[in-house]
Amino acid sequence: MVTTQELIALLQEAESDIEIYENEPMSRHTTFAIGGPADVFIQPKTVGALQNALRCLRQTETPYLMVGNGSNMLVSDAGVRGAVVCTSEMDHIAVGTRGRITAGAGALLSAIARRAQREGLTGAEFAGGIPRQLGGRGIYECRRV
């Protein structure tokens, strides 16, 4: 494994569309506002940036944890060794033809449900009160009301 400074330099060299923080308190990124520092905290803004960051982490054999908006997540006061990759900035929501909603991993389920409602779509109502992000799924099939 590389040092924290070497990892940060490699990430910055590999990708510009990313925010990188050293010793970032996880308490800033959990709904319970608890948790010690992550050695490296990474927030990619695009799918490409996420792919580049993950490639860099794998190449350097850096352990990493993928997180969303920190809902119902408990982090030790000792923090997280290695890297935390947070998808909360990847929150785009698009409505395509035939009621297909495509969203980034960081899109809140409640925001997806509200967007479906505004577009006159049904099928995402269940997500209205769930305090979490979409994660890896990315596509919901809804239908016109």
Rank of each mutant, 00 (worst) to 15 (best):
I8S: 01
I8R: 02
I8D: 05
I8C: 09
I8V: 15
I8E: 13
A9E: 15
A9V: 08
A9G: 05
L11C: 05
L11A: 02
Q12G: 12
E13C: 02
E13L: 11
E13K: 15
E13M: 07
A14F: 05
E15L: 05
S16V: 13
S16F: 00
I18K: 01
I18A: 03
I20H: 02
I20Q: 04
Y21R: 13
E22Y: 00
N23L: 12
P25E: 10
M26N: 06
M26D: 06
S27H: 10
S27L: 13
R28K: 15
T30M: 11
T30F: 11
T30R: 08
T30Y: 10
T30P: 04
T31G: 11
A33D: 05
A33N: 12
I34Q: 10
G35D: 08
G36M: 07
P37Y: 06
P37N: 11
P37W: 06
P37L: 04
P37C: 12
D39P: 01
V40N: 01
V40H: 01
F41H: 10
F41K: 01
F41E: 07
I42G: 03
I42L: 02
Q43L: 15
Q43V: 15
P44A: 09
P44H: 12
K45C: 09
K45N: 14
T46N: 08
V47A: 14
G48P: 05
G48I: 06
A49R: 03
A49I: 06
A49F: 03
A49Y: 02
A49L: 04
L50W: 12
L50H: 06
N52G: 11
N52W: 00
A53K: 06
A53T: 12
A53P: 01
L54H: 06
L54W: 04
R55S: 13
R55I: 08
R55N: 13
C56G: 01
L57K: 02
R58L: 13
Q59M: 12
E61P: 00
Y64L: 09
Y64E: 09
L65S: 05
L65E: 05
L65V: 15
L65D: 00
M66K: 08
M66V: 15
V67K: 05
G68F: 11
N69P: 00
N69E: 13
G70C: 09
G70I: 08
N72D: 11
N72I: 12
N72K: 08
M73D: 04
L74W: 09
L74Y: 11
V75A: 03
V75H: 03
V75F: 08
V75E: 00
S76A: 13
S76L: 10
V80I: 15
V80R: 02
R81L: 07
R81Y: 04
V84F: 04
V84A: 02
V84I: 07
C86F: 04
E89H: 13
M90G: 04
M90R: 09
H92M: 10
H92E: 14
I93P: 02
I93H: 02
I93K: 02
A94E: 15
V95H: 03
G96K: 06
G96Q: 09
G96Y: 10
T97F: 03
R98Y: 09
R98H: 14
R98K: 13
G99S: 08
G99C: 06
G99F: 10
G99T: 12
G99W: 11
R100C: 11
T102Q: 14
T102D: 12
A103T: 10
